[in-house]
Amino acid sequence: MINTIYLNGKKTQVDLEKSNLLIDIVEKYSRKIKNQNIAVAVNMKIVTKSEWKTFKIEKNDKIEIVSPFPGG
């Protein structure tokens, strides 16, 4: 079944029955990133890297994937 999540503010369709683990979402959408400087929050709460493998995503969750950017 296709479910809606919000990935970096964008409405995104995913099959949570196939996999509802956060790590699969992160890897799918950030697989091109060659470094480890990614951090993730779900519903405005941080989910640390060690939790990605077990953290379960539910429909309508708001996932934020961030990395370093220029800043002052």
Binding site: N37, V66, P68, F69
Partner: peptide, 28 residues
């Protein structure tokens, strides 16, 4: 100093990839 922002799902680069590792980072 650097910030953190939503990754660009298309380009997916980050500032640290182009900067020398010698710098100490102060994120904001």
């Amino acid at each position: 100093t650097v910030s953190v922002r939503r990754i660009d799902l298309k380009s997916q680069t980050n500032i640290l990839q182009v900067l020398d590792k010698k710098y100490t980072i102060l994120p904001n």
